[in-house]
Simulated scan of single mutants.
Amino acid sequence: MSQTYDCTRPEGHEAGLAAALAAVKGGRLIVMPTDTVYGIGADAFDNDAVASLLAAKHRGPDYPTPVVVGSWDTVTGLVRDADARMKALVE
């Protein structure tokens, strides 16, 4: 079941964020606006959710999608080898 929330309105903001969080925690995909286009989101630590995201985007594991991270700990949890060069690029 899909639901649309208008998060630009006060009455939709809290409900929309709560629904998005519940969906992601439940392994489902969400659609969210970005600064230029709509994006499809999922929990990058949930392998089934990532597989669903790749399928929705008609991509295989050889063409990964970007991941937005909020901390260096998240980066090191997602990559196999985190070296100084990669850390410099991220920073």
Rank of each mutant, 00 (worst) to 15 (best):
S2W: 14
Q3I: 11
Q3E: 11
T4S: 14
T4R: 06
T4G: 14
Y5D: 00
D6A: 03
C7Q: 09
T8N: 10
T8L: 05
T8G: 07
T8H: 10
T8R: 13
R9Q: 14
R9W: 05
P10T: 06
P10Y: 03
E11T: 04
E11A: 06
E11F: 02
G12K: 00
H13S: 12
E14M: 10
G16E: 01
L17N: 12
L17Y: 10
A19K: 03
A19R: 01
A20H: 04
L21S: 12
L21G: 09
L21W: 08
A22N: 12
A22P: 08
A23C: 15
V24E: 04
K25T: 09
K25L: 11
G26H: 06
G26W: 06
G27N: 07
R28Y: 09
R28F: 07
L29Y: 01
M32Y: 11
P33L: 03
P33G: 02
T34E: 03
T34I: 04
D35K: 03
V37Q: 10
V37E: 07
Y38D: 09
Y38H: 11
G39D: 13
G39E: 07
I40Q: 10
G41K: 01
A42V: 05
D43V: 09
A44Q: 14
A44D: 10
F45Y: 12
F45R: 09
D46Q: 09
D48W: 03
D48P: 08
A49N: 03
A51Y: 04
A51I: 02
L54M: 02
A55F: 02
A56F: 02
A56V: 00
H58L: 03
R59W: 00
G60Q: 00
D62I: 02
T65F: 10
P66K: 08
V67D: 06
G70Y: 14
G70N: 11
D73I: 11
D73S: 13
V75G: 09
L78M: 05
L78S: 09
L78F: 06
V79Q: 05
R80K: 14
D81M: 13
A82D: 14
A82H: 13
A82V: 12
R85N: 13
R85C: 11
K87Y: 13
K87G: 12
K87F: 13
L89T: 03
L89N: 03
L89D: 03
L89H: 06
L89W: 08
